[in-house]
Design a protein around this nucleic acid. Structure first.
Lengths: 232, 232
DNA sequence: GCACTTTTTCACCAGGTGGTGAAAAGTGTA
DNA sequence: TACACTTTTCACCACCTGGTGAAAAAGTGC
């Protein structure tokens, strides 16, 4: 299991050179990602993953160990990229605007990297976001999984917002973040519900429409909550 | 299957009278609801449901047919109550306030029934909301399922908002609704994520805290989006 | 008591599940 | 060539899956 994983990764003397080995590993991750995103962890069998990747079932266990470890590998693969993109985006915003920062600006710096990646990063990212959205709404183990991978950058967001609105209470900021993440994840997962609900007026794949509204929506929400709390 | 269902429901001559039959049916639904909410459709086996309900596996098939039909029965059981509560709440708001309606008022009339039911309706409702939240974020079949059960009352919300803000475009209203439902569902599903994220400052079970913030948050978001669209 | 229906249990099946161990095939070095 | 090592395949297992059919039990009206 873990031994196999380590062994495969290190590759003592002869390391893979052609379209095998690590390439195949990525292929397996791609297939698993798409299937997990569509049907959830329990809705996918290792055989389905193997079949779609065009490999033997045993190869999955050889590379990743148990099914759950495969899932974690899928989740982990893009999490770092995501966190770094967001962190860089927020740092840049703070550096550029300094004392002239706005709530909407901070929120844009936090969300926009995800929209851009989803638009430009290739099909795998859309599956990944759908996957994260599903995990985010999973009571059994979703909370801890999200925390494990995404807590730091969220704290960066909250702390930056606290700089912009020093009088805001942390309680309000955390609640507002939860509202924000609910909206954001649902938008990113592109479930197609808004398409039928609006009878073709809106399309969940239209992330440009999301961009044109979500930042302003969340920012106004933040301001309203902070203002109301300050009053009471 | 369907035959068994119909047979069980009609009950030609002698219909059940004591703590059997229909009571047992509800027990099965309760167990299934809790398990489906925690682990999703594919994460639960009919044997787990039967075991927790204290009945034989075959009895589930006798009452509900296939596993998917059991799931639909769970989903349907509370959907009607929910829709009616929201519809009544919004009707009452329109009648009471008429020309003096506000966006926040309409949104409150739309969301508050769910919060109240979750707080006062007993433990089953919390599981149910977690279940709906999960379905809402399921790409494969979540969109159509949500549409099937909840579209009418959503259209009622959108139409009422259109009365309050006649200049608003439907496109904006639908998008804002999606943002709203993402926040609302995540709050209602009480995943516990905000507890660890805020290091104990907030608790996802604290629906009073949600009530104190979510309405204002969403209303301000709506106003901002509508205003921005009017400008452009 | 009886006939009749509904509810519940029991034994069982065909197929699928995650996972394993050992053999086979491939690869680079000498 | 032989070798050391990694990667891939094959056959297989113990267990669990959703689901069924028939029998037993329990309820009901006469």
């Amino acid at each position: 299991m873990t031994a196999a994983k380590t062994r495969a990764r290190s590759g003592g003397r002869g390391r893979p050179s052609k379209a095998t080995g690590l390439d195949l590993k990525e292929t397996i991750l791609d297939s698993a990602e798409g299937l997990f995103a569509r049907h959830g962890f329990h809705g996918v069998t290792t055989r389905q993953v193997a079949s779609e990747a065009g490999v033997d079932t045993a190869l999955i266990h050889y590379y990743f160990g148990a099914k759950r470890e495969l899932f974690d590998a899928v989740f982990l693969r893009r999490a770092d990229i995501l966190n770094q993109a967001r962190s860089v985006s927020m740092d840049a915003y703070v550096k550029t605007f300094g004392g002239r920062m706005t709530v909407e600006g901070v929120i844009t710096a936090f969300i926009d990297p995800l929209l851009r990646i989803s638009q430009e990063g290739g099909g795998g990212w859309k599956s990944y976001f759908a996957l994260v959205a599903q995990v985010n709404n999973t009571p059994a183990w979703g909370g801890e999984t999200m925390a494990r991978f995404f807590d730091p950058v969220v704290h960066q967001l909250v702390d930056t917002l606290k700089i912009v609105r020093p009088d805001a209470e942390y309680r309000d900021l955390y609640w507002c973040y939860q509202f924000l993440t609910g909206s954001m994840m649902l938008a990113l997962s592109e479930t197609g519900r808004i398409d039928s609900l609006s009878e073709g007026l809106c399309h969940s794949s239209d992330l440009e429409a999301v961009r044109a509204r979500l930042f302003a929506y969340c920012a106004a929400g933040f301001e309203a909550v902070v203002a109301r709390s300050g009053k009471a």
